[in-house]
Amino acid sequence: EEWNVSVWGKRRAFTEHVEKLAELVSEKTGGEFTMNVSYGGLSKNTENLDGISIGAFEMAQFCAGYHEDKNPTITVLELPFLGVRNLEEEVAVSHMIYEHPAVQEDLARWNAKLLMTSPMPQYNLVGTGDPRETVESFDGMRVRATGGLGEAFKAVGGVPTSVPSNEAYNAMEANVVDTVAFAQHAHLSFRTIDQADWWTANLNPGTVNCPIVVNIDAYEGLSDEHREALDSSVDESIAYYLDNYQNNVLTQWDQILDEKGVTKVEFSDEELQKFRDATQGIADQWIEEKSAQGIPAQELYDMVKAKLAEMHGM
């Protein structure tokens, strides 16, 4: 049994759990069940769900925000200011949402079953010029942020500006944008950090959600032994991912901030609350829109908030 797995880009922290999963599954089945992880050879990243639906490959990674209409339910995890504080929390809320029947039904339209998430840290801003420390200072700020995050900055007077991620560095250099919202590993690989004067350490405006899915027929066609090997490897793969991200990316990130003398901007609770209030409309609108499509939007949103409150011990 060999599965084709479609991911994209280069092997990086973002794909380490897939590599680990392939390794574990092969180990557990004595090399009988292997995975061939292809970086962009099998599909374009925005069309991995199509490939799963066709049956061209058995496993794939994608990000919900690439195509909201393909996966309306999981975009709840991309709403601004949910209050996720770290990768462990991101995993917990994601996997809880993946379990919900409405979400499973949504993805079943693509013949896809959600296996695990690829937790991304919050998309904090890297910026040039004087640090922006208040919500008022976001007024007129040109920010490279896509989808729901772009909406959030728009709500406080920011100007979301479309620039492809690989042009983000140039765009900052050319003052096309003042700030760029990325996860840390992307700030590193697209080198926006090299342009940075400051970084928002605790703004935590939101993130993208990038699940790993499997083709339902392929999953059900597995022998019990192989399916067991796959299912039982998920938690270990995620643990490996978290460990790797913490030790490699985040540690490196802190070092680089120090080396380059980048200012860590800490927002006061009061300012954060102002931002949250200003963007509440986005979540409300999401709930209204998705409810109209027959999705239990309010329930999904409340589940996320409740889970986070529970984890924060509130």
Binding site: Y66, H67, D69, K70, R109, G147, S162, E289, A292, Q293
Partner: peptide, 11 residues
């Protein structure tokens, strides 16, 4: 679906 759409552009 709204706009008869099941796939949409990113921004």
């Amino acid at each position: 679906a709204p706009n008869w759409s099941r796939d949409s552009t990113i921004d």
